[in-house]
Design a protein around this nucleic acid. Structure first.
Lengths: 127, 127
DNA sequence: CGCTTTCAGAACCGAAAGGTTATAGATGGA
DNA sequence: TCCATCTATAACCTTTCGGTTCTGAAAGCG
């Protein structure tokens, strides 16, 4: 799976977000993490594996205990991805209205041949 | 489903992210959106429904065409969520090392009773 | 009116997700 | 050495996901 899908997929589950929230307080073992949830220990272990796979946490064995702790790098990437789109989105805000207006005008005149998805060179959305 | 799970779940699929990327250029109809993908039209319609459910796009029927366009609000919420955690994460960076050090010290002295998950009141992480 | 285009919905399918219980491997303690 | 604890894995089940094909409704066009 691509890294971005892994990160977003990991964040898409409320239990996993709660685990991250708990880990923001301090590193913790599996039993400590499992305690507040109405869920079995293997279920928590699975969630931790998903988070680890996504790069959102790292894990280290100390004795029998296995500590999880947060990793910021992957999240930073995901945030950057989203902010990149936020830029685009603010620009594409009223495009639907424009398209409808163009279409309506076309209908009324019944002469123009412009496609409804007009892209009149006003923006150069290079990435 | 809670809104945050819906947004992250929607972003967890590469096809849906590509759809958003395409929509960042301009609003588009289902056929236009489906064209570059090696995928049937109903599949694209399903993806659009997921994006709409997550609040990431809105849709409007003009004639037979149905235009999709991006919505920024939900994304902004998701970004805020992630940035909130980024703050926590930068603080909890070296906690594992601390825990290991504390545990090792405990092992070596074989006298201390401090739990490994020390949380010595240094931070008040209220949310 | 009849045809074509655009799109959504239904029915179906295989794979993945999210949970369970039972078990086994490490490891520390009595 | 024997026992208790911590954790991962295996096997299993049910639901969701991501895709398909087929069909039908809505709307413009000749």
């Amino acid at each position: 799976m691509d890294p971005l899908s892994a990160v977003f997929g990991a964040l898409a589950d409320p239990t996993r977000r709660a685990l991250l929230q708990r880990l923001a307080e301090s590193d913790a073992t599996v039993t400590e993490l499992a305690e507040p949830f109405a869920m079995s220990q293997p279920a928590i272990s699975k969630h931790l594996k998903v988070l680890e796979h996504a790069g959102l946490i790292s894990r280290s064995k100390v004795a029998t205990a296995r500590y999880s702790h947060l990793e910021a790098e992957r999240l930073r990437e995901a945030i950057e991805y989203m902010e990149r789109y936020k830029r685009f989105w603010s620009r594409s805000f009223d495009r639907l209205d424009q398209a409808i207006a163009a279409f309506t005008a076309m209908q009324q005149t019944t002469t123009a041949d412009e496609p409804a998805t007009e892209n009149n060179g006003k923006e150069t959305t290079d990435d």
